[in-house]
Design a protein around this nucleic acid. Structure first.
Lengths: 335, 335
DNA sequence: GTGAAAGCGCTAACAA
DNA sequence: TTGTTAGCGCTTTCAC
């Protein structure tokens, strides 16, 4: 890589002249600017990012800590973050916590040494279970802004981007009730997460308001067991005529299972899932979904962080919580 | 963030003494080391990453350029890269090219300014179509090592990690032939990619060797059309009794479609797909898959790059191409 | 209009 | 054993 020094030497001027010329300083003569720029172009000069970062005490880099990149929702949020960050000249360093508290802490250790200007993250499962927040507060105390999305730690004072989980399942359940469903169940693989609990509560409220059935909840611990457990459940609960799924996958699997049992979806049984357009087509009929607008969530998170980075005068206790409303997208699995 | 300077001042020693003490230099007295380390601990001192990078002319950061993070395979590779990189003390900066040549070029521009030590990437669709490789060669010429995975540019001299695409579909097709299938079709949504072509060629070879049918290929351009096109195809080709799918999604959709048409999978029709364990459970029966070991591919790519970064004496024309063999994982959609 | 010098935080050769 | 100095590449203040 070419440096200012080398350009300066070749042009027989000083380093500072070259620097100023490249930054279009008023101080420098027109023809000097021209000469400098031509040589810089020729050598494909680019200012060294590391030196700039050191000089300006900002890296223009965002640390992103994601619990699980194989989750389609998380991948989409990451996509949104990357895009929005890029538009503002920021890069992202991605760490995957793998749902582990320790890995999450390590990632902070690793990046809070000047590698990044701030953090965007979704809290790992283990962190939520153990309700540990010290590492977040420590980073905030060191002056690193944090934006949390989807799975947030409510008692940490920082910007947040969340979904209206409760309302979404409440409304979805109401929808099925209005379809005339009499025995609606709730299927979840994310029982341990705050968002999972909220979704269940929304379902519960709708069911309890109606008084025609009791809540009927199927909790599945492992992804691999989904097909088996759902099949077993539907066989043991023949009167189930509606399913609300809290996660990505169980909705499509419920549809396929019902179909394989000879049920007609949506005539005999309706299904609504917290899922994506992409996955919704993995069943016939396609799954009616609650869309979370993951890309927009990522973009909002990036905006909030960058805004805070660029307006250092925002008080740290003046935080924003942005709620991205879900959309109900009717496809084939509901009437 | 605390700096060496601040520690030095407080301890009434010089900056270099503090630096050496923290690095356990032999030169420094035991008790000085102790004093320094205690204060550093107290203040939670961490060496500034940016300053280190500048000093040592290496960032310990890898630039990863991925065409599409919403593709489950790519996400898994990224996971593997992140993990392996972390083990060696490297961070990753992720850029998403979105299958666009321009975005891919920009990402190089953006990172080849000292932000990263080298690149891991999978070539974007557009880049493959236009067969543009200048930006790769330029980066190599500037001294940035590159490792390509999955979709590689064959005429660029760099380390590569690929899959035995041709053999995989050749063998899978043979497998169906041995099952007694007489009319096996090939379904692809990745016709434009080198890997897609290789997979088709493997299928073609197996079919042509057998001489009992002609190749029967269904190419689908858009993800959203999958269900519709596959249904239409199966209805117009009632004698199809086997399907080889070249991509993530079309295998499970083929199974679900066949089932919805009243066919028995695998009795009436067998399906094998280039897909993941995760997606294989989105159909009943589960899809028999060709596993690509995406995480291992990511790990291998990271190893190759880091090895090159740490052994700067490896000749740049001495490149390694690692072939990660796929595994045939029999599930329910084959006999 | 141009250049010299300082400094961002760190390491390391050399001096004391 | 400890300190001084130079330098990584850049910007910026101040002097000429």
């Amino acid at each position: 890589m070419v440096t200012l020094k080398q350009l300066a030497k070749e042009l027989n001027v000083s380093v500072s002249t070259v620097s100023k010329a490249l930054n279009n300083s008023e101080e420098i003569g027109k023809d000097t600017i021209k000469r400098v720029k031509e040589l810089a172009e020729l050598y494909n000069y680019k200012p060294n990012k590391v030196a700039l970062s050191l000089k300006q005490s900002q890296t223009k880099t965002i640390g992103v800590i994601i619990p699980n990149i194989l989750n389609h929702f998380m991948a989409k949020v990451l996509f949104g973050i990357e895009r929005e960050a890029g538009l503002h000249g920021y890069n992202i360093i991605t760490c995957i916590s793998n749902e582990s508290l320790n890995k999450e802490k390590e990632s902070f250790q690793l990046l809070a040494n000047g590698s990044v200007d701030g953090f965007i993250l979704s809290v790992s499962k283990e962190t939520q279970m153990e309700n540990e927040v010290a590492h977040f507060k420590k980073a905030l105390g060191q002056g690193f802004p944090i934006v949390m999305f989807d799975r947030v730690a409510h008692d940490v004072l920082c910007d947040k981007v969340i979904v209206d989980d409760f309302d979404s399942t409440y409304n979805a359940t109401k929808y099925l009730i209005q379809e005339g469903r009499k025995n609606i169940s709730f299927v979840t693989t994310i029982d341990g997460l705050s968002v999972g609990k909220l979704r269940e509560q929304g379902y519960n409220k709708a069911i309890l308001e109606e008084k025609q059935q009791k809540p009927l909840v199927l909790k599945i611990a492992k992804q691999e067991d989904l097909q088996e457990k759902i099949k077993e459940f539907l066989e043991n609960n023949k009167t189930v005529d509606g399913v609300i799924s809290a996660d990505n996958a169980s909705g499509v699997i419920a549809i396929n299972t019902a179909a394989s049992m000879g049920l007609n979806v949506p005539k005999d049984i309706s299904v609504i899932g917290f899922s994506s357009n992409y996955i919704s087509s993995h069943s016939i009929p396609k799954l009616t979904i609650i869309r979370q607008h993951a890309k927009e969530m990522g973009a909002s998170a990036a905006q909030l962080l960058i805004n805070r980075l660029q307006n250092r005068n925002i008080a740290s206790d003046e935080t924003t919580t942005k709620i991205i409303k879900t959309s109900f997208v009717k496809k084939g699995s509901t009437l």
